[in-house]
Amino acid sequence: MKIDPMMTEMQAMKMEATNSNVPATGAQVGSEFGELLNNAMNNVNQLQKSSSDLQTRFDLGDPNVSLSDVMIARNKSSVAFEATVQVRNKLVDAYKELMNMPV
């Protein structure tokens, strides 16, 4: 698993957040958050499709696909999915907490 592109992206996001002189409106923050969630879901979906494709190719006897490739892809997609579920759970908890606040 290559960490360098992910680290570069995280550093770029940090620089963007710290160098932002223009205050963001609620609509801008909401749309950026929505895009971030959409991108994350698409990445998880792509990992799952890739894992499934590798497994199918291995099952069909493709000599270019090894068992270790299949297992690594499967674990990557599993970890990504579990992380997505945890983020969803935290968002639901935060929503419930906001809804229970007195006005």
Rank of each mutant, 00 (worst) to 15 (best):
Met71Val: 07
Val44Leu: 05
Ser31Arg: 08
Leu47Ala: 08
Ser66Tyr: 03
Val85Gln: 06
Pro5Asp: 02
Ala27Arg: 02
Val22Trp: 02
Asn43His: 11
Asn45Ile: 03
Leu47Asp: 00
Asp59Arg: 10
Glu82Leu: 10
Asn64Ala: 15
Glu32Ser: 14
Glu9Phe: 07
Glu9Asn: 08
Ser68Asp: 13
Pro23Cys: 05
Met99Ile: 06
Leu67Val: 09
Ser77His: 01
Asn43Ala: 15
Asp59His: 02
Gly61Ala: 05
Asn43Arg: 08
Met7Arg: 15
Glu32Leu: 14
Asn89Ile: 06
Ser66Gly: 06
Thr8Gly: 03
Asn75Tyr: 12
Gln55Val: 03
Ala24Gln: 09
Pro5Tyr: 04
Ser31Asn: 12
Asp59Tyr: 06
Lys49Gly: 07
Arg88Gly: 05
Lys14Leu: 10
Asn42Pro: 01
Ser50Ile: 00
Gln86Asp: 14
Met99Gly: 09
Ala94Lys: 03
Lys96Val: 02
Leu47Tyr: 05
Met1Tyr: 08
Ala83His: 06
Val70Ser: 01
Arg74Val: 04
Asn42Val: 08
Asn64Ser: 15
Lys2Leu: 14
Met41Ala: 12
Ala80Phe: 00
Asn21Pro: 00
Ala80Cys: 06
Val79Asp: 11
Met6Asp: 09
Glu9Ser: 09
Asp62Val: 02
Glu9Ala: 12
Ala27Asn: 07
Asn75Asp: 10
Asn42Arg: 12
Phe81Ile: 02
Tyr95Gly: 01
Ser20Ile: 07
Gln48Ala: 05
Ala83Pro: 00
Gln11Thr: 13
Glu35Val: 06
Arg74Cys: 03
Met13Val: 06
Leu54Phe: 00
Met71Glu: 06
Gln48Lys: 11
Ser50Ala: 07
Met10Ala: 15
Gly34Ala: 03
Ala17Lys: 05
Gln48Trp: 08
Asp69Asn: 02
Ala17Thr: 12
Asp93Phe: 01
Lys90Val: 12
Ser50Phe: 00
Ala24Val: 14
Lys76Ser: 02
Asp59Lys: 12
Gln86Lys: 03
Thr84Ser: 15
Lys14His: 10
Leu67Gln: 11
Asn19Phe: 03
Asn19Ser: 10
Gly30Asp: 12
Val65Gln: 01
Glu32Phe: 05
Met1Leu: 13
Lys14Cys: 02
Asp53Cys: 04
Ser50Asn: 11
Gly30Arg: 14
